[in-house]
């Protein structure tokens, strides 16, 4: 299976704090190690929240791009559970 096939899209545009990180957590709960979660967000707090969570949880931000009117951030799941 390709890496793209393991990528879950989470469109949180228009949703404000805590929407984007809440949506990310839902996807994280369903994800497997090696999966990627791509979050689209317009909430300015999303980047710092998701970056802090990834650092704390041992997961990796593989891409963070400011598109014209939203942030696109991709998290690779490296750690989940004990």
């Amino acid at each position: 299976m390709s890496a793209v096939a393991n990528r879950k899209m989470v469109d949180s545009r228009g949703s404000f704090c805590p929407g984007p990180i809440t949506d990310l957590f839902k996807a994280y709960r369903a994800a497997n190690i090696g999966d990627e979660i791509e979050v689209w967000a317009t909430d300015p707090a999303a980047k710092s929240d998701i970056t802090a969570w990834a650092a704390r949880s041992g997961n990796e931000i593989v891409e963070a791009t400011q598109e014209k009117d939203y942030l696109r951030i991709v998290v690779k799941i490296l750690k989940k559970g004990r």
Binding site: C17, P18, I21, T22, F25, A45, D49, A52
Partner: peptide, 10 residues
């Protein structure tokens, strides 16, 4: 809490 801080709104 799953959130970064003690309440989700900054």
């Amino acid at each position: 809490t799953p959130y970064p801080k003690a309440y989700p709104a900054e």
